[in-house]
Amino acid sequence: MQKEVVDSMAMKRALTRITYEIIEQNKGIRDIVLVGIKTRGVYVAQRIAERLQQLESSTVPVGELDITPFRDDQPLDIALAPGKYQLAFPVADKRVILVDDVLFTGRTIRAALDALMGGGRPQSISLAVLVDRGHRELPIRADFIGKNIPTALQERIKVSVTEVDGHDGIEIINDN
């Protein structure tokens, strides 16, 4: 069973609001870089970057982060040999905004923090997510949230983006 809880209009609005909130909390976009977590986080980050560009007429760098080597459910030998620094730009002294589609246990974000830190010491790291579905297993919270969607553990959240899935929207899927 699946149910669309956020349609494309609401998703657009959520991205717009996150963008305004980024400007509000950072007092502008100086030193800001966006880092999207693969796969869908990257597209979310790109859309936020487009919006920032429209408002402020200057480009914000968008990086792509693959957190696979940093996951805590990998065999130890892989986890101990993390991939090299992945971003095309240095993050030292930048205000990094980490972007993902869904915030769940927090383990992905922890891995992303590890992957990021390899590139220097950022001024700050904040987290923007399209959906916060609860059930955290680590002490991690988002700074910018598109939509809080309370879920049951067995449910799944599916974020669709046009670039990958052909349409925009967020669905709750219950396999039972």
Partner: peptide
């Protein structure tokens, strides 16, 4: 109309 939704979401946030 969705400017009103934007307002409601700002309040929720």
């Amino acid at each position: 109309l969705d400017v009103f939704d934007e307002f409601v979401e700002s309040m929720q946030q």
